[in-house]
Amino acid sequence: MNYDRLLEGKFAVVTSGAHGMGKYIAKVMIRHGAACAINGMNPEGEKTAEEFRKNAPASFFIQCDMSLSEDRRRFIQEVSKRVDHVDILVNTVGINRSDFSGEVDDERFEYTQQVNLHGAIWMTRGFLPLMKKTGGVVTHISTIHSVLGMPPNTAYASSKSAINAFSRALAVEYASYGIRSNVINPGGIFTGKTDEILAGIANSREELAAWGRRGDLGQPDYGSGSAYDIANTALFLSSDMARHITGAVINVDGGVVNQAHRFYERKLPPDHDEMFYQVIKNRFTPVEDL
């Protein structure tokens, strides 16, 4: 196995791959030899595709509103016209318009389901014919709120939890075609605007530490994770390193799901403040540097 080029020659579809977490995922996949089809609502996503084409000429962007079934259909049709195989699908797209359970707004609930759940199911269904040819890997970006409660999260949590169940069903239904399906549950992850925030405070030790502490509440590990951590997990799952892993859910969350509750005595090193600062300073690799 060539660990430096884990996805050589593969074609990946990364929804919402034009920015944020999706862009990290697509860039890591391109770094490993894949080409990517990405989508997003903003036409500026084309600029991301241009950047991708420098290293992966077959990459392209298609504008798409994942809440609209006609847009989803058009995206699938256009990708299917342009490539003859899809090896990897990463269902990254996700929005959160949640209310308390007793006050669920129909429109906001439906919109969240359309984007998060219907989006993932439609994309999977649409690309399965291309994946069935040679096998493939579907990775769903869900959330720790698919297994934990945090109010108010009704629409978001239910849509993502349904994705976890969908992934398990997909895993066993299409295993005989060599298609695998897994879920990543991100915890507190800084994505898109992190780079801008960090650029503004990078030279101030106090500001950087204060910013990091905002994500530290209740975390076993230091503060929040980086989208790079999610991208590297998607890479692992999409590659042959994980060729016998299917139906799995991986929490990439600094241990949040696995802690019994947040109020426990932690063993802190004597230089905890310095370690905290170093983690916050070094953890968030800007997407441009990948």
Partner: peptide
């Protein structure tokens, strides 16, 4: 390795589902 640096206390099944 660092690919999983934010993965903590997990159990991962390598058993083909």
């Amino acid at each position: 390795c660092d690919l999983s640096r934010f993965v903590i206390g997990e159990s991962l099944s390598v058993n083909g589902g």
